[in-house]
Nucleic acid binder design. Structure first.
Lengths: 338, 338
DNA sequence: ACTGGCACTCGGCGGGACGGAGTGCCAACC
DNA sequence: GGTTGGCACTCCGTCCCGCCGAGTGCCAGT
């Protein structure tokens, strides 16, 4: 294991490297942090740390740079989460409170997060699957064309247009609407299929295929949007750091275009547990030099969705984690209120 | 003015420069294009073209590069729009036809455009202001909380939650809903304020403030979303070209984050008229090296919104314009059908 | 009006020298 | 045994220089 001083040295290396973006040497360490020992001693410790795989040198006779393993230890044991200042918290709260609808909440959140962390922010829309149905609306656009609008407890609205096998009267539609709402309002998505399976039965032979079509579309909508929506902001921040451009930035931008990849990045984060995935831990070739800090958010006890940021492995972890956690909390509050 | 051969030379310069990304010299021109004259003659023409400001040399004794003015002439007079192949057209059509709702149409369109042009694609959502109202729905979430859902003729759905000054009965809500729909369904946004201004009058003294609140929220929604929504795709394509990275890409990414800027870029494009804005014509500092090709699209005669692409000034204008125009047409068709 | 020839200019590239930062090791010290 | 100062060594980044080639402008000739 690493004794206390070696851990101090590693911590100092990470901090300095994050601050300067340059390999850090023994002399600079001894100067900037008062570790109470000479550069020579630090050199010995650094050799040990390198032996264990926590740091590495870009080339012989250069300073040391943390490895993914080094950052991992730093995050897990050597640093905490840096809480935001009171002023920052208040700013977040008032900024988010100004939102008018769900789109606005999500949009503000992602921009806020990007600005706070100076990195790329990712926010997933509140999940449909875990939420409940608030209302179903049906309306005719044309004699054989019906629009279905689904409103969820998280404020999300889904729409779908369908063609019916025959003309639909207003009375029939009103009947279906009433039955549908009394059956499934307030129910969870997962329970809907069971609840409506016999809903077409009371109708006449001509009406039944129409009703069945409507039900099928409803079920379709529920399933379809399991694949979740995500939004991004702050891609310009990718250019902030001294990334060696074409090779580093390109694959990251490509990955960000793929919503599937983004969702996997947000990954297993849950409400209280923040996830930090460093470099290769992302299991994605183009993201070997980037880290992801993600956390779930929700209104109340449940995790509705996730949000996070993505930046170079050489990021300010404590600060970033603090910002991500704080934003997640306030979004949760806002959602709970609306 | 420029005689015919000088125009040919300019055209050849633009084509070669776009293809190779390198300054083009007189000898290369004489070789690749059979202009029927010697390099020396071409040199004279080039000197004249430079004199007039159509081309420039990065430094003495290098080849020539088109200026913004040169591209402008090229686009206006020297090149047409390159139509897509039949296979490409069919691919576009089937890809777009698979969309299930408006979000999906827009999402597919923007990805398609990015892929076709290998550039950054921008698509604006169909405008609210020019469309008509298809339906207004009201529903209670809590005794003093009402949700308003607005469905437009372009398939867009807007939602808004409001608190009412007092409890709202279902009967009252149904009454308001019915009156509202009979008054404004099928009407244009711009006409709504006039149409509903006296709608609260028939109600009792207790009801009136509630109804007034609902109407106010409705008007608010109409106004609020004048600022239009846009979506992006293909930012990774920015890295394709030999842009000198940090300085070129950074401001572009920053501009793309600002929806206001994006909307201004799409600018004055209308349905039949395609707009090409080259370099400085964008009137935006960071976009001095980028061009925008934009066009309006719509279902039928009216322009509902705009779409376009953004890329380096050294882009393949005929090809890009062809792709943009084709995609705009097919999106218009799809929207007209749904 | 066009062409061939020629001198000139300038950027890009490779090679070599130099300085500096940082290391590893060793002998001395507490 | 852990810590320290000293020292030789390594290697990168940078600067400088000279060369080469591409391309130009000009001029005299057709």
């Amino acid at each position: 294991m690493l004794d206390d001083r070696k851990q101090d040295v590693l911590r100092a290396i990470v901090q300095d490297y994050v601050a300067t973006q340059e390999p850090v040497g023994s002399k600079a360490l001894a100067d900037r942090h008062n570790l109470g020992v000479s550069p020579a001693t630090i050199r010995n410790d650094m050799a040990a740390l390198e032996e264990e795989g926590y740091i590495t040198q870009p080339h012989t006779s250069a300073g040391r740079v943390p490895t993914d393993k080094g950052y991992r230890l730093f995050v897990d044991r050597l640093a905490g989460v840096k809480p935001l200042s009171g002023a920052e918290r208040r700013a977040i709260q008032t900024f988010l409170a100004g939102a008018v609808d769900l789109d606005d909440v999500v949009g503000r959140t992602v921009r806020l997060l990007a600005q706070l962390t100076h990195q790329v922010a990712v926010v997933q829309y509140p999940s449909l699957t875990r939420s409940t149905i608030r209302h179903v609306e049906l309306l005719t656009l044309a004699p054989t064309r019906v629009m279905l609008v689904l409103i969820t407890s998280t404020g999300r609205v889904e729409q779908r247009v369908m063609d019916t096998p025959g003309p639909v009267g207003e009375n029939l539609l009103a009947d279906v609407r009433a039955r549908l709402n009394s059956r499934i309002t307030g129910k969870r998505f997962a329970d809907v299929p069971l609840l409506i399976q016999d809903l077409a039965e009371p109708f006449t032979a001509e009406e039944r295929p129409i009703v069945a079509g409507i039900l099928a579309t409803l079920l379709d909508t529920l399933v379809e949007h399991k694949e979740e929506k995500v939004v991004l902001a702050g891609t310009a921040n990718l250019t902030r750091f001294g990334m060696d451009f074409p090779n580093t930035i390109r694959p990251v931008l490509e990955a960000l275009e793929e919503h599937v990849v983004l969702l996997r990045l947000l990954g297993e984060a849950t409400d209280p547990g923040m996830v930090v995935r460093i470099g290769h831990e992302n299991m994605h070739e183009g993201l070997a030099a980037t880290s992801v800090v993600a956390v779930g958010y929700g209104s109340g006890q449940e995790t509705l969705a996730k949000l996070g940021v993505l930046g170079p492995t050489r990021m300010d972890y404590p600060g970033t984690m603090g910002a991500v956690r704080a934003v997640a909390r306030y979004v949760g509050q806002i959602l709970a209120e609306s």
